[in-house]
Structures are given as C-alpha cells and as structure tokens.
Design a binder for these strands. Sequence first.
RNA 1: GGGAGAAUGUCCCGAGCGGCAAAGGGGGCGGACUGUAAAUCCGCUGGCUAGGCCUUCGUAGGUUCGAGUCCUACUUCUCCCA
Length: 380
Amino acid sequence: MPMTQPFSFRLLATDGRARRGEIVTPHGVVRTPAFMPVGTLGTVKAMFMDDVKATGADVVLGNTYHLMLRPGAERVAALGGLHKFSTWDKTILTDSGGFQVMSLAKLRKMDERGVTFQSHIDGSRHELTPERSIEIQGLLGSDIQMQLDECVRLPAESKEVERGMRLSLRWAERSRRKFEAMGGPEKGQGLYGIVQGGDVPSLREVSARELSAMPFEGYSVGGLAVGEPQAVMLQMIDVVDPVLPRDKPRYLMGVGTPDDIIESVARGIDQFDCVMPTRAGRHGLAYTRFGKLNFKNARHMDDPRPIDPTSDCPAARDYSRAYIHHLVRTGEALGAMLLTWVNVAYYQSLMQGIRDAIEAGRFEAFKAETKAAWARGETE
RNA sequence: GGGAGAAUGUCCCGAGCGGCAAAGGGGGCGGACUGUAAAUCCGCUGGCUAGGCCUUCGUAGGUUCGAGUCCUACUUCUCCCA
C-alpha cells in the first residue's frame, strides 16, 4: 500500500477570531473557511458535479442515513466508493445519521447501544450504532467522518439536553475506537467529534472540553440552527470557541444563511454546510451579493437583465431574470437547476471573499461591506 | 323540426338540490425554507364607513319568512333523434 498523506489542518492566517486555513484529505485540499454543499444522496441536487467543482467547492456532503437505505453502503463500496459512484473526486464529508435521529423522531427508538428506526421509504427496521455509522462512512470512502451523536430537538429541558450531550460523548469514544480499528487514520481520513448541549452555555462548554480531550481530527458544533434565534446560536459558538483546540478545524453543522456564515466565521468557525442554497434554489429563491431575489415574484417577469453580470457563474451571468422567472413559474426543472447553480456559486464566492479578507487582515471591513450590500439591495 | 341536459363568485374548472358571500382545485399575489422524507410547505385571492352592511350564481318574472337551489318565459351552449 502506498503511503497516504495523513489528514492535516493548518492555520494560514487569523484576523481577530476569524481563521484562514487548509485541510488536507486523501482527496485534496479544503480551503477554509469552507462552505460544503449538501449532497445527501450522492448528488448536489439539480447540479452536475463538474459545475459544483467549478464554483470552487472543495468538499461536498454525503449522508449515512440516506445512503445506507438506498442504495446501501455495501453496494456503494462494491461499486468503488462514493467518490467514484458520484464522480466527485474531491473531498467528501459524511454526516453520521445523528441529525436524522432527531428529524425522524417519530420512527426512532434510542438507547445506549444506538438508535433503531424505521425507514421513511419502506418502513423497514434498521439499527444505527456509533460503530455501524463509522463502518458505513468507511464503506462510502468518506474523507471526513462524523461521530454518531444525538441531536436533541429544541426547545428542551436542560436535563434532557444534558442527557443527549452525555450520550453523544460516550458515542464519541466508541466512534473513535471504531474509526481507528477501521484504519481511518492510516488512510488519511478524519473523524470529527460533535459538540452538543443545546442552548445551554454550561453544557456546551462541558461538551467542548471533554471532546477536546479526545483525539479527533476536527470538532463539529451540532444541534444549532434548529429554530433558535441567531443570537443564541452565536452565543453558543462564543462559548465553545475558546475551549476547542486552536489547531483543529471547527465545523458548524447545518449552517446556514449567508449572514449566519459570516457571523460564525467572525467567531472562529472554519467549515459550514447547509441545504439553504440548493433547497432555496429549487424553491425559486436566489442568493446574491445584493441580497435575496424571489423569482416567483411578478416583478421579474419583464426584466431582461441577468441576475448578476459580474458573476462568473453562467447561470447568473447569461440568463435573463425574465427567463428564469418564466422557468420557475412554469415549474421547469431548468429553473431549479439555474437557481441552485447561482446560489452555490454565490456561497462559494462569499467564502472566497471571506478567505481573501482574512488573509488581507480586513475581515471586519469585508463583513461590514458585505452586510451593507445585502441590506442595500439593488438601489442603483 | 322533435327530445334531453347545462349556464356558479366579473381568470379557468367545479361542488352545491330552500337558510350561501357560496366547498374544492387550478391560476394569480405574497411568504417560509438552516448536519435535505422538501422541484416542498404556509397565507391571501367580491366590496365597504368592515364581525355589521352592500353586491354576486345566464336574463326577466314568479312561489316562499327566505331562492344559486323550486316554477314560467327567454338567451346561449352541448348531446340525441329526424
């Protein structure tokens, strides 16, 4: 076996608490702060992988829960792994299924050992343990893997939040053992522990501290952006930021809007993922440097201008707003495709702007300018 | 020429068979979407001096306390027989 480069992270620059870094995985370099488009089922919905790559994305997500049900982890492995299966040859990060344990709460049965749930597809019963989750992520060939965690639904009693957080810590240890038993480190893969603790600062701190004592390649902050006010989310990041190791990447799971991202980068977060750009795109909403545009609105009907002539995304540059409005209104698949592309491209250009600004030591100014532009809209 | 049936809320389809400002859809207008059971979901869609009044169900009459609903005539459309 050829020597594989070990998983690594290094900080290239900091500006205030904002961090500019680089993660190296078996499938390339991930420039941070990074936004990772969500590709639950091995596809970033409504986009070609080549186009995703061209927007500047270094990594996409895959999902343990969904892929274990269809087409099945063993099948993907037999077909050469998720990279080959999906034609995405850059880094893949996989979720552990922990989030689905919450979002599919009606179907679940949870105990110390793991979670038993019924498939949303055919009702069949499945068990997901920390070990099986890691096994599946290994079968998929994931470069950055997540421990199985329990994401408690908010609002919840702090007793319940603590129970879920403690369980997640125990599962973190089991996940780590399995990850090492499967040779993850030798393959250059990484495993992240997940900070839980809901909206309770003291629990977040405990979770971050105990997790930091375990040898993970990175640390995720989970269980946020699930309905709580942004201020609460940011407060939780503030609590966790000084506790987590400086020399490891921090990944804020499931976040978020452009504003959430820029505020979280300001608090030391390195990685993000969110369905926002892809789902919103399918639903007719464009994210741009001058804010949101809802293409269901009649005001675009006669507008011959492109969404953003300065963009290097063809969807934003080469198609008229009137045409995109027409596609969205008529329910044409191309409308969803173009807007998804616009959004993924905008998110990536935002991240590029953030990275450049941190390197230049002007992140705060960049943040202020960017937010002002969103607020200003298109007043020209 | 004879017979049968239908016209509904000022965009369309359409329920309604004596208490109706009138079900549902579509369309339209707007909103939401945060580790994707989501090309999904949620509002609004007659007027006003606004929880009360006004004007609406092809047209004109009639019956009734009360008519979109029953009766008569007319108009238009559809189908069947010649």
